Amino acid sequence: MNESVLVTGAAGFIGSHLVADLVKQGRPVRCLVRKTSNRKWLDGLEVEMVEADLADEAQVTKALENVGTVYHLAGAVAGTRQQLQHANVTCTRGLLQGCAKMPNPVRVVHVSSLAAAGPSTRQRPRRATDPCQPVSQYGHSKLAGEQVALEFADRLPITIVRPGAVFGPRDSEFARLFRLIRSLRCNVLLGSHDPPVGMVHVADLVKLLVEAEMQGTCLQSLAGPMNSYSVDDGVYFASDPKPLSFRELGLKVRGMLHRPHAWTIPLPVTAVRPFALMTQVVAQLKDQRIVFNLDKLREGAQDAWTCEVKREFAELNWRPRRSIDERFRETIQWYFDNHWL
């Protein structure tokens, strides 16, 4: 029997695209989902569904039966420190502990975030060999998840991928931005410095994830705290080589949104902070995960979020298959076709 590929976070934006690609390749796919997961993007795909809590050892062991590869995408992008710690660290440890107990080594591709590495400068993109300097609770939790992966590097073949800002069909975050441009005829920016951001289309990210599994290098065991990686340590970034600021993005897409004269309006960080604090308090009181909060405000106030992808080009033979302009045009058309705009 062919070994299955287990995808955690399979029902999510990135996970559902990855699952579809793996199915298209003819690989047997097992989707790890929660009871509350909305599985609409997985409907019609020939996959096996498994409900499991990654913090539950017995459930993880059962989910890993006859699995040869794991793509670990499950996690949280917002929440309290405790929620982020549980989703991005505790659950990662539970999964890798289960993988390490399997009779045969399980290949693991761990999807982290550029936030774990931290912001860059305008003059120089971040590299995998740079010391990690996260600025948000989310970034710290993702880095802690990478530290867990490093602890298992002597027992499991693990590769880490750090995507920048991911966009494409089914993504709700960029859809909210585009709705503002279309409905209010303005592109609202955080602050006046307008940092460049490394962005990647979900289809290009999926291609990089698969290439990382097939031919990426693996983490090497390292004693002591993790603050940097060498070029052979199995850490890859995922970003289009041409970063965009959100001002530039707004200017590019406003015509695609049929709002060619939409205004660009920068809001001072000090003016936005009370709103971010309010949404954070409401989220905590209602036990909800609202993406925009003080944590995201800290990320948005940085100088730049760019990363170098020369290693990805050389080692994984990876390139974005279409220009970023084409990708945003395709994404916006999908939003229109599916009544998201």
Rank of each mutant, 00 (worst) to 15 (best):
C186L: 12
T264S: 08
V33R: 07
A175W: 00
S16P: 12
G250S: 03
M49S: 13
L341D: 03
S221W: 13
F167Q: 01
Q123C: 08
A11E: 08
A116E: 08
K142M: 08
K310R: 13
L297K: 08
Q302T: 13
R298I: 07
W318M: 01
T121A: 03
L184V: 02
F246G: 02
P134L: 00
F313I: 10
I160T: 04
N317V: 06
S172P: 06
P241M: 06
E46Y: 00
R322Q: 12
P274W: 02
F292A: 09
Q97I: 10
N317S: 13
G94F: 01
D204H: 11
V109T: 10
S37M: 09
E173P: 01
S239W: 01
Q147H: 06
S245L: 03
G68V: 00
T61Y: 00
G224E: 01
L32K: 08
L18D: 01
A117Y: 07
L64D: 02
S136V: 02
H110Y: 14
M49Q: 13
D21Y: 09
L244C: 07
I265K: 04
G94L: 02
F178Q: 04
S120R: 06
S192L: 04
V47N: 07
F275N: 02
R93P: 07
R127K: 09
V50M: 10
R247G: 06
W334C: 04
K286I: 04
K242D: 10
A55F: 01
L249A: 05
P163A: 06
Y229M: 14
W41F: 15
I14C: 07
T61N: 08
Q215K: 15
A63M: 03
K286E: 09
V188I: 15
A11F: 05
D303G: 11
L32D: 12
L209Q: 06
I332G: 03
I324F: 03
R319I: 08
A63K: 04
S136L: 01
A153Q: 00
W305F: 12
K101N: 14
